[in-house]
Simulated scan of single mutants.
Amino acid sequence: MSKAWIQAKHPEFVRDLFKFFCQACELLEHQMASFDADGTVEFEVLRDIVGTEMDKGLLWRMKDTAHHVFRNDPHVHLGGRFLDWAIGYIFHETVKLKEDAYQKQNYAPWFHTLIKGDPDSSGAEREIAEQLFQILSQTEESMFREIARIRFIMAKCRQLLPSYLHRYSDNVLLARYIFSQNGLVMAVFKDEYDALIRTIYGEETERMYVLASQSLRLGGWMDEAAQAVEKARQQNPTSKIVLQEKKIIDNWSDGMQA
């Protein structure tokens, strides 16, 4: 991919990066909550979200997209460079978690069965087996540390992303995603959601809905555009940009009824 092409697609990459981050947070937090509850994560889920060189998973695509966004932005600031590193760190730490999950899921039961199920083994063999099993038992400690690091880095990404995205407050694709997937975005950012929107859009937070409406309208999704502009109207009923967008939607609606 040429640098010119990447820069031309930059608004899409910014949207995709935010989308991948929200999706990754949801999937990883579900696995980490499972570990909190019973000490297990699903190897198959981690395998799929990491993927392979030939079949990249969600985290791999997020890492690559972060490189496209931050390494081809001539105005990237320190926070952007930290985000590039942090998102890559999440990927690599999840790779380690995946491998530990495989060991625990597949070999821990196997070791336990062998140790308990072979009464004819010699004392020396059983002693060595017990020692090897102790190494395997440390896998859970490694998983605990990996999960703690992933959670910490994701939290820092949630703090850094809004400031970086402020520069893209006119990105209609980003606004459309936040509106269309608002439940997911709110679930990921939780009590940081309001700060996310304020940091990106300033005091005119209704702009997010107006931009989303414009993108949806241009894509032919008029009902969804009407929902977005109504959200904007509820936030600021006297805003000129809100009233302008609402007039366009209303004119279309009137034309459909004529």
Rank of each mutant, 00 (worst) to 15 (best):
P237C: 12
R233H: 12
V14S: 04
F13G: 01
E230A: 02
F144K: 10
S239V: 01
R47K: 11
G219Q: 05
R217P: 06
S2T: 04
K9N: 07
A195W: 07
L83M: 03
D55Q: 09
K56E: 13
Q214K: 02
G57L: 08
M1V: 11
P109G: 09
G79Y: 04
A155R: 10
Q138S: 05
G123L: 07
E206K: 07
E141D: 04
S253D: 02
S213Q: 12
Y168R: 08
Y209A: 15
Y209G: 14
G79P: 00
C157D: 06
Q105E: 08
T238R: 15
V95P: 09
S253F: 04
G123P: 07
Q159L: 05
F43T: 05
M154F: 15
R126C: 04
Y164R: 09
R217V: 00
K9C: 06
Y168P: 03
L28M: 10
E140K: 03
F13D: 03
F13K: 09
L173M: 14
G219N: 09
D250W: 00
K63S: 15
L173S: 11
I178Q: 07
E224M: 15
Q159K: 06
P119K: 06
P237W: 06
F133H: 06
I135W: 03
E12S: 06
Q7K: 12
K116F: 01
A37T: 04
S215G: 10
F91L: 13
I115C: 05
V210P: 03
P109Y: 08
Q181K: 13
K156P: 00
A33L: 15
K98A: 11
V69K: 11
W110D: 12
D254T: 11
Q7P: 00
Q138V: 00
H30N: 12
S34G: 03
N72M: 09
Y89C: 03
C25M: 09
E224K: 15
T40F: 11
D38I: 00
G202V: 03
H10Y: 08
E203K: 10
V242W: 08
L28T: 10
G51S: 05
Q234L: 15
A258P: 11
S215R: 10
S163H: 11
L174D: 05
F43P: 02
Q134I: 01
A195T: 10
Q134C: 01
L46H: 09
L59A: 11
D170P: 04
N251C: 06
E192H: 13
L58T: 14
L114T: 05
Q138K: 03
A33V: 15
V210F: 02
A226L: 05
D118R: 10
E204I: 04
S169R: 14
H75F: 13
A195P: 03
H10C: 05
V242P: 02
E230L: 05
A108Q: 01
I178A: 07
H92K: 02
F133W: 06
S253W: 01
T52D: 08
Y201L: 07
H166A: 13
M222N: 12
F111D: 11
I6Q: 07
T94A: 13
T139H: 00
A124N: 08
K19N: 02
L216W: 01
H77F: 09
